[in-house]
Design a protein around this nucleic acid. Structure first.
Lengths: 176, 176
DNA sequence: AAGTCCATACGGCAATGATTGCATGTGTGC
DNA sequence: GCACACATGCAATCATTGCCGTATGGACTT
């Protein structure tokens, strides 16, 4: 399906459904990532993984830039990378021209970890897409709806309904 | 001669002479150190030597502490040690417990340089002390006076006299 | 010989970058 | 409930850099 071309025949009401579906799908995908991280042999939190992903895509970066990319305080990056360095996933290199900066870079272990997470998550998403309901979807909205349902994530409307009436409800874990 | 015990028989007038003599001697000794540095194969300024001497006596120190010891801004220490590091006289080591600090330490070359300067200067001072006039000194004041004269440095009074009447006088170099 | 130019060293001040100590909030497991 | 680890921000600390000014010594010109 072509996501770049917006189908002209879809009414405004369907757009609202689409937004709801994407929101649900977003939660589902985050859940999948979290679950994937949980299945790894090394213990990596979601924050640490976010850090690693930025490092994987942006190459060597300075502490302050990584903090900006993650929208956190530089000190947070320092300590997060301390933990990642202890686990052998990240390496520091003092700047040659500017000795104040410490360049942060992924180690081979770090790179392979990112690759592994990508692979497993892709596999899980592929399973989702191959669901009979997804395969039978005849519109973008239907597809998103099907994917959200297949991931076990409640729709946006359902989610808010639950939250308003059952604030003490233990959140059911998403993704499988 | 015991320098720590102040001879009780010396009158106040002699004290003034002693102060003058020591002032002249001070100039002479600084001149000797500067001259000694000039005779070395490596080019080391007086500021750089001051830095090295502190490093030699105080062992590994932090940049900020070295700055305090030299009564100078930390940035000055940074750049002075940059030059000394380029000359292979000083080495930096990043702090293990506190990674902000860089420990400054003398290299073997640095140590030997300090030793060399010490040795040469001591030799020159020894020559001064072995002057017949110095050997014949019967009091501290006499000794200081003799040393100052032997060093070729004018007395405090003479110095000021020259300065006031001949400001355009090219300063005669001290020390030999 | 005197003057000019230039490179280097010295020095301080403000800004920058990384880190640390301290405090707080948030899960997770016992 | 309670200890423990993680995440987070804030203020302070440490080293460094850029910018500026001064001084000094050497080379080149006049």
């Amino acid at each position: 399906m072509d996501l770049s071309a917006h189908p002209p025949g879809v009414p405004a009401g369907a757009d609202a459904d689409l937004v709801d579906g994407l929101a649900a799908l977003s939660r589902a995908l985050v859940g999948i990532t979290a679950h994937t991280l949980a299945t790894l042999d090394v213990e990596v939190t979601l924050s640490q993984y976010r850090t690693i992903v930025v490092l994987a895509s942006r190459g060597p970066v300075r502490t302050v830039d990584l903090a900006a990319a993650l929208h956190v305080h530089p000190s947070t990056v320092t300590r997060t990378c301390d933990r990642l360095e202890r686990r052998g996933l990240v390496a520091r290199h003092q700047g040659a021209t500017d000795r104040r900066v410490s360049w942060l870079i992924l180690t081979e272990s770090g790179k392979s970890l990112v690759g592994e997470v990508m692979r497993r998550r892709t596999a899980q998403i592929r399973e989702l897409v191959r669901t009979p309901e997804a395969a039978a979807a005849r519109s973008l909205a239907e597809l998103v709806e099907a994917l959200a349902v297949a991931s076990g994530e409640p729709s946006e409307r359902q989610w808010w309904h639950r939250w308003e009436h059952c604030t003490d409800l233990t959140p059911t874990s998403a993704a499988g």
